[in-house]
């Protein structure tokens, strides 16, 4: 038995431990590729080229593609907005960002720590928007506050540069509300939580 076999085989549990203890799903995706490459090497050294080929082609390529689809479709925060507010959604980093873009950017900053991606879902009017929230198509809505809210906010003395929060973000999930309530430090939006079970009774 050659001594290099032991050395190379020791790499496999190392890579597997790296994959298991990785918390970021996107990094785990890439480390799965690392594990696949090392597993192919180990199988080859142990004398199973056919297994190594299968690991490289199916285990690495197909598994990574499927994981990427799963991560992309599950780790997402769907925010319903009105189409009129969405003037140019592309460059969120521009200095002359609209208030909605500032909200989205603040949400992105908050949810980056939870590996969530913020996706904007445009709707035509407020009816459609609230119905989508009730139908659980989206996780939260973000729309301009009503006039009464604006006046109330103006009277608040601690509002930055005496500007009321023009947007109201409503979520139907308690956990998301807790996260946003504790971490979202944006002056352009206020937060509220709606319990869908009580809303269902009202309708």
């Amino acid at each position: 038995m050659d001594s290099y076999i032991y050395t190379i085989t020791a790499l496999l549990p190392l890579a597997a431990a790296m994959l298991v203890f990785q918390v970021n799903p996107y990094h785990a995706l890439v480390i799965r590729g690392v594990l696949g490459a090392i597993a192919a090497l180990v199988y080859t050294v142990l004398g199973a080229p056919d297994v190594a080929l299968t690991e490289a082609l199916v285990g690495t390529l197909l598994a990574i593609t499927l994981y990427a689809v799963a991560v992309r479709s599950s780790l997402v925060f769907r925010l319903g907005v009105l189409k009129d507010d969405l003037s140019h959604p592309q460059d969120l980093t521009a200095p002359d960002a609209t208030p909605l873009q500032q909200v989205v950017q603040a949400l992105n900053t908050v949810f980056k720590d939870y590996y969530l991606r913020v996706e904007l879902v445009p709707y035509f009017d407020r009816e459609e928007l609230s119905q989508a929230l009730i139908d659980k198509e989206i996780h939260a809505t973000c729309e301009r506050g009503s006039g009464a809210d604006d006046e109330e906010a103006i009277s608040r003395p601690n509002a930055p540069d005496s500007c009321p929060p023009p947007y109201r973000t409503t979520t139907r999930l308690r956990r998301l509300y807790d996260i946003m309530n504790s971490e979202l430090l944006s002056p352009v939006t206020q937060l509220s939580y709606v319990d869908l079970s009580t809303v269902g009774e009202m309708h």
Binding site: T44, D50, A56, L61
Partner: peptide, 9 residues
């Protein structure tokens, strides 16, 4: 096997 992994991987 090595060459296939190199090119397809």
């Amino acid at each position: 096997v090595g060459v296939i992994i190199l090119s397809v991987g």
